[in-house]
């Protein structure tokens, strides 16, 4: 029983790792080794470099310190109260999505959790670290500790985080090599699951349903042009795409596909290879 629990803990750590970092299978194996899950001869990863290992306690002092950081860097877009109505917000986007996140709404696009669930702390940490292409700068310049402080402060802005135990999306398999056969299979999945109806036959974001899509706040939100991986807001590594497809982007129009891939999750990795094959940049 104890061993089983231990294994569960390790796989959860690995899962968090793949979802949070978008790293490949090899790295995960190494991470597993560092967790003590593999044989002694496995090469250990300098795990102290992992931001998740440098986690600091979520307490009042850190929330308060997070507020100070927020008021220095985030307030301009996300506003004094976290409602996404800072003085600069208007200049970012007037009539189109996304507007800066309203942290009081409890709705988050970038999650490794099922649709309708809150994001994990690691999800928030990842977005703060990386930023969002074209919209939000990354805050790698802040120390790991400070980024955790920001996570805790942002969580304090919505009551939905209280006692939230979000259910994670199911991750089966790891990224597979983009062979011609895999890309071909991915193309079939793209057709079968009708990705093209929004994203277009060639992935240009010009599918027949593209024109009217809006986000939860009523702002126009065109589907992503899949030929531009650098513009993928939730990241463009295979693990990032896996998250986007399975979790959906709550608050936007992209729905969760986790129910439809149940039992055939391997197909997602093929689909990801197909999407990557569309890249034209």
């Amino acid at each position: 029983m104890k061993i089983r629990k231990h294994v569960q803990r390790i796989s959860r750590t690995a899962l968090t790792f793949i979802l949070a970092t978008g790293m490949s299978g090899t790295v995960i194996t190494t991470a597993l080794a560092a967790e003590g899950g593999m044989g002694a001869d496995a090469i250990p990863l300098p795990i102290e470099l992992s931001p998740f290992k440098q986690r600091i306690p979520e307490n009042a002092a850190n929330v308060e310190a997070g507020r100070a950081l927020y008021e220095r860097s985030c307030i301009w877009c996300h506003g004094v109260n976290g409602e996404g109505k800072g003085p600069v917000a208007y200049f970012l986007s007037r009539d189109t999505a996304p507007h800066p996140r309203d942290f009081t709404s409890g709705i988050y696009k970038f999650r490794s959790t099922l649709s309708g669930e809150m994001p994990t702390d690691e999800d928030l940490f990842r977005t703060i670290t990386r930023g969002i292409p074209g919209f939000m700068p990354g805050f790698r310049g802040y120390s790991t500790e400070d980024r955790w402080r920001l996570v805790y402060y942002i969580k304090s802005l919505s009551p939905d985080f209280k006692d939230a135990e979000p259910e994670l999306i199911k991750v089966v398999g790891t990224p597979i090599p983009p062979t011609a056969a895999s890309v071909q299979r991915g193309y079939q999945v793209y057709q079968k699951f009708k990705c093209w109806e929004c994203h277009g036959g060639g992935g240009a974001g010009n599918g027949k349903k593209a024109g009217t899509l809006k986000d939860d706040w009523g702002f126009r939100l065109p589907p992503r042009d899949l030929r531009r991986p650098s513009s993928f807001k939730n990241g463009n590594a295979p693990a990032d795409l896996y998250r986007t497809i399975m979790a959906g982007l709550d608050g936007g129009a992209m729905p969760s596909y986790s129910d439809f891939f149940e039992g055939s999750e391997q197909e997602v990795w093929d689909l990801i290879n197909y999407i990557n094959s569309l890249a034209a940049e």
Binding site: S105, G116, K192, G248, P255, S256, D259, F260
Partner: peptide, 13 residues
């Protein structure tokens, strides 16, 4: 009334 997303699920099939 605040229309918070509960689920957004794809129904391709």
């Amino acid at each position: 009334p605040k229309k918070k997303t509960m689920y957004n699920i794809a129904l391709p099939l």
